[in-house]
Design a protein around this nucleic acid. Structure first.
Lengths: 212, 212
DNA sequence: ACGCTATGTTCACAGTGTTTACATCGACAA
DNA sequence: TTGTCGATGTAAACACTGTGAACATAGCGT
């Protein structure tokens, strides 16, 4: 177990910096996580960050990955409550799909700062995104894919309906989260936002289930 | 007509700065429009910008408004082509709605830099968004509202379906544009993106028209 | 012709990300 | 135990940014 040296050498600065970034991002969003602020919060000199991160971008991205984990947790939590009382396979499948969307929106409304960070995860920033390797598919997106596959298995969706269904689903839910977080709906009554979000989720599910 | 003085006093620096910002934002997005870059491009000293804009934010917002105009133009253009060969009132109404969505996506894919700017328009940045005054409803959003109302009038949508329908529609289209622009779909083949975008539009329209 | 005001310039300041040279700790080997 | 060395943190500097204050110029109205 790493002793707390309390002088010069930090126990695990990498983790400490990510933690500080997470705390700063919670209020203030992505702009609040700067090299100087993070290192200041960790009680360390600015240049120390460069021993653990290539870049400012790299630091932000590490924090973003942590935020993404929290997003995934929020989604699985909401899936659990939605599928709690869903009797049949068919009901459970759509409840699960609904849970993904509502969990995503939940998180965006509850933690807008972290949500903003989590979005950076989907943008490698590099040159060629090309093909997404299975290993690096973001957990939240994976949960959506699995929920849609479950709908296919349960007979909720036909094969034709399942095809590419992840994009309309993700688009609607992510779009609403963005609108409610940074867009014209920002600052509105949380209850109203939750109701509108639920409406969006229901309607996109209906759209995906519609005849083709 | 303002003579080109070519020394010290610029003809219309306000417009020139917005133009320069537009040019810079086209490649480079919102980050490229900084006070120093814009003034440099306009051939003027950095502090000159502060005679015409309160703030860096204010400058960016002015450029964003210009970008938003271009977005609105792209939408009306696409509406025109979609409704060109739509015989009945009912077909014309859904064609118009489809045109709004496709135009939005068109613009995002064709001019990602400007699109990023245009989004800032919907975010006043100030404290209380509260109620949107009719006068300051962004033109693109207004086009959506009008298209939905036309669907109501044409009997495509019931009153219950029309209610709050702007949010699922905007969420889906905006969400897809964001995903295709900054998200995991960025850099993908334009033809594929256009097809996926069209699919998203069709499915959200189906979702809005579904039984309630 | 004389100001007056609008507009643009210069200089300075605080803050940022980042690099370079130096200091210190912890561990491993003779 | 002692010496050395790599890993880790510090200090100082650089280039850059947005922004404000003091100054300069141009053109308009009296």
């Amino acid at each position: 177990m790493p002793q707390i040296t309390s002088s010069y050498h930090h126990g695990d600065l990498h983790a400490a910096l990510v933690g500080a970034g997470l705390a700063l991002a919670r209020k203030g969003g992505v702009d609040a996580v700067g090299v100087r602020d993070v290192t200041r919060q960790a009680g360390v000199s600015p240049a120390a960050a460069y021993r653990h991160f290539e870049d400012h971008r790299a630091l932000v991205l590490a924090v973003a990955l942590a935020a993404q984990d929290h997003l995934a947790e929020a989604i699985v939590a909401r899936i659990a409550t939605e599928t709690a009382d869903a009797p049949g396979d068919r009901d459970a499948a759509v409840a699960r799909l609904r849970g993904v969307g509502l969990g995503y929106i939940d998180f965006a409304l509850a933690e807008p700062g972290w949500f903003e960070l989590a979005l950076l995860t989907f943008d490698p920033g590099g040159e060629a995104p090309s093909v997404m390797v299975a290993e690096q598919i973001p957990a939240p997106f994976l949960l959506l894919l699995q929920a849609l596959d479950a709908c296919l298995d349960a007979g909720i969706l036909t094969a034709a309906q399942r095809e590419h269904a992840e994009w309309p689903c993700w688009s609607a839910v992510h779009g609403f989260a963005d609108i409610a977080t940074r867009g014209p709906l920002r600052g509105q009554d949380p209850a109203v936002l939750a109701a509108l979000g639920a409406d969006v989720v229901e309607r996109i599910i209906a759209g995906v289930r519609a005849d083709r």
